[in-house]
Design a protein around this nucleic acid. Sequence first.
DNA 1: TTGAAAGCGGTACCAG
DNA 2: CTGGTACCGCTTTCAA
Lengths: 337, 337
Amino acid sequence: MTTIHDVAEAAGVSISTVSYALSGKRPVSEKTRRRIEDTVRSLGYEPDAGARMLAGRRTHIFALTEPLRADTHAPTHMAFVLATTVAARRRGYDILLLTDEQASEGMNRVAASNLVDAILVLDVAPDDARADIARALRSPTVFIGIPDDAEGLTCVDLDFEATGHLAIDRLADAGHTAAVLLGQTEVSYVKSNFPRRLLRGVQAQATLRGVALEWATTGVTTTDVSAVRTAVGTALDRGIRAFVVHAVGDVHEALLAVVAERELTVGTDVSVISAAASFDTTTLPVPVDTIPLVPQQSCELAIDLAVQRLEDPHAPARIHLIPPEYLSAGSVAPARE
Amino acid sequence: MTTIHDVAEAAGVSISTVSYALSGKRPVSEKTRRRIEDTVRSLGYEPDAGARMLAGRRTHIFALTEPLRADTHAPTHMAFVLATTVAARRRGYDILLLTDEQASEGMNRVAASNLVDAILVLDVAPDDARADIARALRSPTVFIGIPDDAEGLTCVDLDFEATGHLAIDRLADAGHTAAVLLGQTEVSYVKSNFPRRLLRGVQAQATLRGVALEWATTGVTTTDVSAVRTAVGTALDRGIRAFVVHAVGDVHEALLAVVAERELTVGTDVSVISAAASFDTTTLPVPVDTIPLVPQQSCELAIDLAVQRLEDPHAPARIHLIPPEYLSAGSVAPARE
DNA sequence: TTGAAAGCGGTACCAG
DNA sequence: CTGGTACCGCTTTCAA
């Protein structure tokens, strides 16, 4: 194993100069710096992680806690984990996984042992136990999602309420006076934090704009496509022509299929808006207006905040809501009287 | 922050005694050990990770590399990550994630910096670039899955070929002379390592047992349920009554639905075997014989192997195949002539 | 612009 | 059974 001493010797300088040349924390003359860098490359030197942690009091590791509940939507979750990992790496951090029981216990353990510089929280539940843990910890902690009691916590998320407002506004602007919110599974409104926020936003704005709203869940614990088809069919029968969909891809497809079977056309006869979709809605059989949920946005911001709090531990904790963005695809039609 | 010195002082012993009392690497009298443990608890002492790494030349961290290709089946993948994390934790190890480009580059980086004690490889491709990297590395590396060139590598996986044999044997034993393998998506036979192994096993045994085999993929890049329905319908039309399914839950459901629509009964008119399913087939609408793929088995074995190689770096590398297990549910019917 | 040296908090060897 | 202490490899202060 090659150490900083080997590099120093080979380059004919002291180890402190090597250290500074590599960290840039002290000016080093151009020529010696280049000589050192060459030596590092030719020797294949990589600083020892343990030594760096011990001496530098920085581990360059973030913990990512994810309970992975049974109702967690795997593809969406994977997208968040991936986005977090990539964003972290970009800032020079690795990700240490805390799953299952370790999601909570592990937070204390890795914080107490100084294994990580900060903690990122995924899969946030309304009454998440990790909120209290985070408040008691000295390690910076950033929630991606918002628990009911977010007092004193740093949180990041799409503004789901504003997303709900925006969707209803577009439908109301088009003259619709009735709409259906095709939502998530029933348990997710209890176990997760965001479906209810979207629901609240939709409901509030519907009331404000005079839109008669109906809320249909898409299964109890798991997506039930036939239930979706029934719900959509019933709504269409009753003359409702506007849908806000906050659900997985299958639900979108089921909705579009039922519409097509009735020989109705999205964008002409029927209006559809996909709200907070974390998958690529452009691959749907029909173009659909979308207010996307972009994991990269939340995760990059979360990483930035973690790094910030590391540099300035006194930065005040607050909730960071990402404003929704409306992507038009022509799927909202003027209401017919 | 409380250190080992604080503990030693508070307990009235030397730091070496504290260290040994906690590691158990040297006998410590019952009474002093208890006194130390009490002190540790009351002070909330947790050894510093960096210091432990540096002095102990062990990080207690395993890397988990997962490229997360677009065709990766998220729920199955999550199950493997979870199983790995839990198994690792049980042996005292944390998991560091290497995704995306870091899946390959990261291996060299974390090995060179002594960030991890071993590396676990997930999402193995037939021509996986990580095979060569692993061969060049000093860090113990365990593949969960088998690349084409596994020379010199430690690999763990379900014995997919034997799984194929077993499925065909059961059908042949029941008198079937024709069967359909309802497989994965087309790309997975190119990008992944295990679908082709199952396929080979099924094909070989079908030839051996005189079973006319047809192989149907279930979409190109993504599962196409309507294609599955068509394939099943065609097979039934042609009198085929035996199906081996190596696919996600949706495909099973589509198959069972088509069978039901024709007023045929699984276990009487039609035989179905689910091969290497990583989801819970008992929740299917009809009981189905299953040769399960249990992530826990592979992952626990992988962790054990990693730990073993840590203790004995000279243990020879080899492929560990987990024998398939057949779970009867009465879905295989005797063939009718 | 550079070097020397004091830690960082453990582990494990050498004594007793 | 227990204590003293030499490192582990790097960061950073102090001096030059």
